[in-house]
Amino acid sequence: MKYLVTGAAGFIGHFVAQRLCEQGHSVVGLDNLNDYYEVSLKHARLANLDKFVESGLFTFVKMDLADRAGIATLFSDEKFDRVIHLAAQAGVRYSIENPMAYADSNLIGHLTILEGCRHNNVQHLIYASSSSVYGLNSKVPFATSDTVDHPVSLYAATKKSNELMAHSYSHLYNIPTTGLRFFTVYGSWGRPDMAPYIFTKKILNGDTIDINNNGDMWRDFTHVNDIVEGVIRIADVIPQRNDKWKVESGSPATSSAPYSIYNIGHGSPIRLMDFVKAIEDELGIEAKKNFREMQAGDVYQTYADTQDLFKVTNYTPKITVKEGVAEFVTWFKDFYKI
């Protein structure tokens, strides 16, 4: 099949593109290579895909999602079978500092992808939502049947908006769409703005790490290899219409339209301090710590109920935090030649 993978120079996107190429699919990878974090890391990820460029399985296109004409032309020319839309302006705290970037990438950009699917008979759109949509929810584990109407950051609000926009297109144009609510992904080639990367770098440099909410936080840390396995498998699970579904009695994660929402995470959260300890143990260095209050836009706990995803894909995460942290630290030291 021919796939479009947006965010192909990103953390998850470049792994997804790689797996698809390994399976023999043709992949067009799109990314705007913005400077939200070091662009050299994005180029290094793309370099991992060079062997598939040589074999003709991978093509890279540098383009911004908000380029309406460019995205429309790309869809028209390439005639994709499926789209895995992972590109977005990421980061909870950055959405407080630079909200307009989220409107351009996460709202307009998502709409250009939906329009491309609408006009070119794409058989399945899989797109990245986020665990952040659960916002003020305190019931755990977070289930896709829960209400997600109280986000605590603009980033979360844009991801909820993506789900609503996808539903409208599934309903109006019969486009099968699947949204995946990602839970705290980590691993090799990870993003420099995320805690595992920040902690590892600072501990190695002898710098102090900030511990939010005085360490009383829980995260459903999920290794990127497990995430990619789930993404690849869900691409084959194409939502179908269900005319018997009713708003009053049906789950908000499904619809009468060909529309689905799934959590994708480990399903076993750990305390932030235990994750820090795993990094310390792997590095053999005790971190200098600055304990501080909860930060704006943060949530106390994330915890995924992943039973629905498991049922349709037979996907269940395999990698423990100890194994995942060891893999990440090994990559980090190798990449930065430490």
Rank of each mutant, 00 (worst) to 15 (best):
K2E: 08
L4T: 04
G13R: 14
H14C: 10
L33E: 10
Y36I: 03
Y37L: 05
A47G: 14
S55K: 15
F58P: 05
K62H: 02
D67R: 12
I71T: 07
D77I: 08
R82E: 08
I84H: 09
L86E: 06
A87Q: 05
A101V: 01
S105M: 08
H110T: 12
L114E: 05
E115P: 01
R118F: 02
H124N: 03
L125E: 06
S129D: 10
S129W: 01
Y134H: 11
N137T: 06
V140M: 12
Y155S: 03
S161I: 01
H167F: 13
I175G: 07
L180R: 06
F183P: 04
Y186S: 07
R191P: 00
N212C: 06
G215M: 07
R219M: 02
V231T: 01
I232E: 06
V237P: 01
I238G: 08
R241A: 11
K246C: 03
Y259K: 13
I261S: 11
I261A: 05
G267R: 08
S268T: 10
P269V: 06
K277D: 11
E286K: 15
A287C: 05
K289C: 09
Q295R: 10
A296I: 04
T302L: 04
Y303S: 09
F328A: 06
F332T: 04
K333V: 01
